[in-house]
Simulated scan of single mutants.
Amino acid sequence: MRKIFWLIVLVVIGGLAWIRLAPSDPGVWHVDPKVSADQDLAHGVRRRVPGDDAMIAMLHRIILETPRTEVLAGSPDDGRVTYLTRSQWMGFPDYTTVQLDDGFIEIYARQRFGQSDMGTNKARVDGWLGRLNTVE
């Protein structure tokens, strides 16, 4: 019985370590967001707002002010940036791709693990856009 307990503990610790330490391959996550309309999804959110180079630069600064957020790939000068944001306690990774395309800023935020992000990406992206609208 004691061995089973320790085996379960090791499996849980291993799973948590994998979530926090799993590599983030830009080839998988730094892709065209393909946003044609606003969508609230179980695993994330898509948003499409009018924008230009100056707005994507402002949005980039706003996003980088978010705790536990860093650039995974790209830059505003490239026209596409993918950010990695980790949850505070468990370190769950969320990926957000922001792209300037034909006068629109397209944003696709999604989780990596699990079935539902419980609205985390929606709240984060809508907060960024709210801040962007107050700066304009």
Rank of each mutant, 00 (worst) to 15 (best):
T66Q: 12
P93V: 05
V11I: 15
Y108C: 00
R110I: 13
D101A: 03
R2N: 07
I19R: 06
V28C: 00
D78A: 14
W29Q: 02
L7H: 01
V9K: 07
L64M: 13
T134N: 05
A73C: 04
G130T: 12
T97I: 10
P26A: 06
F104H: 11
D53I: 08
P93W: 14
G44Q: 06
T82V: 07
Q99D: 01
V28E: 13
A37R: 13
I13A: 12
L41D: 02
G103M: 13
S36D: 14
L7V: 07
E136T: 06
M90P: 00
F104N: 05
M55W: 06
D25A: 06
D40L: 13
G114W: 15
R47L: 09
Y95Q: 03
L132D: 05
D38M: 05
A17G: 04
P67W: 15
R86W: 11
L10E: 04
V135A: 06
G91R: 11
A109L: 08
F92C: 01
V49D: 05
E136S: 01
V28T: 10
R47W: 10
Q88M: 14
R112Q: 13
M58Q: 12
A73R: 02
R46N: 04
N121G: 04
T120W: 13
L16C: 02
P76M: 06
A109P: 05
L100A: 01
